[in-house]
Amino acid sequence: MNFLAKEKCLCEELANILKGEAEQKKNLCKVTRERKNLKPTILGHPTSSDLVIALEFSFEPVAKKDKTLNLAELVFLQEEVNPFLQEIKKSEQILVTAIHNHWLFEEPRLIYVHLESVQNPIEFAKEVAYALKKAGVK
Rank of each mutant, 00 (worst) to 15 (best):
A63M: 12
K39T: 07
E107H: 06
V52D: 08
S91V: 11
T97M: 08
V52G: 09
E106A: 00
V96L: 14
T41C: 01
K64Q: 14
E92N: 11
I94S: 07
E127C: 02
V62Y: 10
I99W: 03
T41K: 08
A129F: 06
N82L: 15
I53M: 13
P46E: 15
E92G: 05
V118G: 05
T47W: 09
K90E: 15
H45I: 15
V52M: 11
S91A: 13
I53E: 05
T97A: 03
F57Q: 04
P108I: 01
K89R: 14
D50G: 15
V62T: 15
E73S: 10
K36E: 14
E60Y: 06
A129W: 05
L115D: 08
Y130P: 00
E87Y: 03
S117Y: 04
V128G: 04
V75R: 01
N70Q: 04
S49L: 05
N70F: 05
A63V: 13
Y112S: 01
L85M: 13
F57D: 11
S91N: 11
Q119T: 09
E87P: 00
Q86L: 15
F84E: 05
Y130A: 13
I99V: 15
S91L: 09
F84T: 04
F105Y: 12
I88R: 03
T68G: 05
K65G: 09
I122S: 08
I88T: 10
E87T: 11
T41N: 01
F57S: 07
Q93T: 14
E79A: 07
S58D: 12
A131F: 03
K90L: 10
V96P: 05
V62K: 04
V118Y: 04
V128A: 02
P61G: 06
Y130C: 06
P46I: 04
T97R: 06
K89V: 11
A125H: 01
L51F: 09
A98F: 02
T68N: 01
F124C: 05
Q78V: 13
E107K: 00
F124Q: 04
I99M: 11
H45R: 14
E106C: 02
V118M: 02
